[in-house]
Computed example of a mutant assay.
Amino acid sequence: MSDCGSRALSVIGFIGSVFSPWYAWSGRRDPENHCCINVATYGPGGRFTMTDRGRSALRKTGGALTVGPSAMRWQDGKLLIEVNEWGALPMVTPVRGTIEVVPEAVTSVELPLTSDGAHVWRPFAPVARVSVALEAKGWQWQGHAYFDANFGTRALEQDFAFWTWGRFPEADGATCFYDATRLDGTRLAQAVHFDRAGNAGAITPPPLHPMKRSMWAVRRETRGDAGCQPRQVMNMLDAPFYSRSMVRTVLGGVESVGVHEALDLRRFRSPLLKPMLAFRVPRRARWSFPS
């Protein structure tokens, strides 16, 4: 998120692109044949890119991940991202440039999301700074950021019905909330505070508050002090099964604006969604790197 709060972006590297209809239609047997660097920019001139690519586009070398024309690599304590993508329909225009994420510290935390460890959240750097230099007017800015990862050995919809996640910056670090309803009826309700040195501690989750539903009527909720009313301050990504937005809440008597996600896996399981997603997630099975 930019320091002024008017722009934001997200970058996700997928090996086994969990939201790709092509990966689902393939039976999810070969994750390396469905890889992607998903880039989405939010604010004036925002674009969404998510191209499902075949295994010929994938390179993994040490601390680097390359998928076709885009790459991310860990170098000198920084995450350097080189973006060279095309926006999805209906705004098929280039999205190019560089992004640099500088963590204040790297944690050693891993949080299993299911009792058997089939799904794991790894918050590498919940407190970081980002510098954005994309080739578009107004897309050169700095702000606060985070760097995390999710790992899984089963499809999300096999184990979860619904979840929300949020990361909210605070003066001394950041607090993350992970709330989920599993298909077996059990619930995850995790709140973790990270300080600027990378130390993490579980905290008592503040109350869960309902929020206004998204444009696609996805149910949303997040946590905050008793009596507060969390609300969206910027819509970032809206899909029939998913919502990402900037949300303002109150933690310890202090307002915080962070990134919030809500994911309805019951909706995502619908076969009707996959053809809709294919319009936004094109498949490019072949790729050749320059010799």
Rank of each mutant, 00 (worst) to 15 (best):
F19Q: 05
V233G: 00
R213Q: 13
P69I: 02
F162Q: 06
F279D: 00
G87T: 05
A278W: 06
R219W: 09
P126I: 08
L156I: 10
G5T: 02
G68D: 01
R269Q: 12
Q140E: 15
N235Q: 14
P31I: 03
N38F: 08
L188G: 03
A105I: 02
T204L: 09
G201I: 07
R55A: 14
F14L: 07
F147M: 12
F279Y: 10
H209C: 01
R280V: 09
A64P: 00
E255K: 08
A40G: 12
P103K: 01
V127H: 08
L79D: 05
N38H: 15
S70A: 08
S70T: 08
K274M: 11
P206G: 02
W121P: 04
K137S: 13
P90V: 05
S270L: 13
S131T: 13
G253L: 08
Q190G: 00
G62Y: 03
N150P: 03
A197P: 05
V254S: 12
K137Y: 09
N150G: 09
D116T: 03
F268G: 00
H209W: 05
L134E: 01
E110H: 14
S245L: 09
W25R: 11
R284E: 12
D264K: 05
E135V: 04
F151L: 14
N199E: 11
G224Y: 02
V259A: 11
R248A: 12
L265F: 12
M276T: 13
V254K: 13
